[in-house]
Write a protein that binds this DNA or RNA. Sequence first.
DNA 1: AGGCGGCGTAACAAATATGTCACCAAAGCG
DNA 2: CGCTTTGGTGACATATTTGTTACGCCGCCT
Lengths: 240, 240
Amino acid sequence: MRAKILLVEDDASLVELVTYNLEKEGFDVVRTGDGEEALTLAEEEKPDLVILDWMIANLSGIEVCRRLRRAPATANLPIVMLTARGDEADRIRGLETGADDYMTKPFSPRELVARIRAVLRRLRPALQGGALEFAGIAMDTTAHRVTRDGRTVQLGPTEFRLLRHFLEHPGRVFSREQLLDAVWGRDVYVEQRTVDVHIRRLRKAVNAGPGSEELPDLIRTVRSAGYSLDAAPVSAQAAA
Amino acid sequence: MRAKILLVEDDASLVELVTYNLEKEGFDVVRTGDGEEALTLAEEEKPDLVILDWMIANLSGIEVCRRLRRAPATANLPIVMLTARGDEADRIRGLETGADDYMTKPFSPRELVARIRAVLRRLRPALQGGALEFAGIAMDTTAHRVTRDGRTVQLGPTEFRLLRHFLEHPGRVFSREQLLDAVWGRDVYVEQRTVDVHIRRLRKAVNAGPGSEELPDLIRTVRSAGYSLDAAPVSAQAAA
DNA sequence: AGGCGGCGTAACAAATATGTCACCAAAGCG
DNA sequence: CGCTTTGGTGACATATTTGTTACGCCGCCT
């Protein structure tokens, strides 16, 4: 999957330079020089990361940053601040406002790309390899294809995102609420029970073996806590 | 939630400075100056973040970083590199190796703390808990999994919370009332005897060995006082 | 328009956890 | 010793949580 980056910057030559380098490295770039528009674009374009200049028209970068953090839809969006000032106090203020990293101008495009890669690797593993794998389940996020032990698994869009989320954090238990946040989106209101139904559909699809055979269930139900993708099944040892 | 930070640095005065500031800010700090040991500690201490000096004994920081990324247990561990070099090429190399951020010496402690906060803020969802361990009992609160001497232990939700409470305060004796407060909640009214029953269930689950064997009981009954999680098998204590 | 696939909800069934009891065992205590 | 107090246990009815199925809605494609 190509990562989409929102570049908020009003220095035209810098925009060109950065855009050129990012696109060369395989990112999609959406651009604006306006603070208000940046907020709109952050919602509508759903970028994977925002590069935000400190000094821009209409709203200061730091204000944009603050508002992005406040809006549920963008609260977790990775933000890299760009600043001409080398002043430490400003950098700290930027980070405390919720930026994830910053770069001081002038910077080299190579370093910017390396930093963005580092941030994305941390935050969106799915964007990196394109391939996820766990306990016999393989997902090609680029091709939107899933296999279990080599056999193709057919999934609906929601089940796909659900499984991807589990594959990105194998072993970890997620509450229904967390899953709704991560898979459905922070601003969607649906019943928590909906998660159960999709878990059920995911299980059915993933655990179907050849013929009518049933493969081991890799989705673990943690009562009163949620679900997790898990390889280690409960040891059915002698408990008599 | 106190975050635990592994500090890998061999300059003693810098270690002091950083440790002092981190602890003042409420972090737990584990330290080493040795690369090999860093890898061990990263696995055993399960820190939430690693601060890694570029120049350390035994293994270079960048090599430590690479190995941390390769091991599944630490592949997603946030890493902040510390370097004396201002050389851009090195910084890029650090980031591309998998570091999430870097700081160039000399740096101000305040900025370091701000950066660490920024990184942890991003990752908080992934940090909900961590690992607890005491006398052979290991609990992974993230995965909601408990083992005794490596064998999986099956617990109900209440038993899980109860055990977690004990693991968080090993050795300490809690009255039934305190346990009801901490595990059930302050506003729930149930009989104190209920605690006994759950202690019983917890013991049964935790002390079950292979087959029908019984492992030593780690939950100590303190008559007319309460219960505690305790490794010491001897009960020749005279409390008054 | 008609058919289709995916989605969210409701409803019911099944599984599991929980709080209390009643009764037994063990530990202080005079 | 015998009595009293405190903790251990197994059983059980109830409450809560989860599994599963059916159904209607909506957007999309032809």
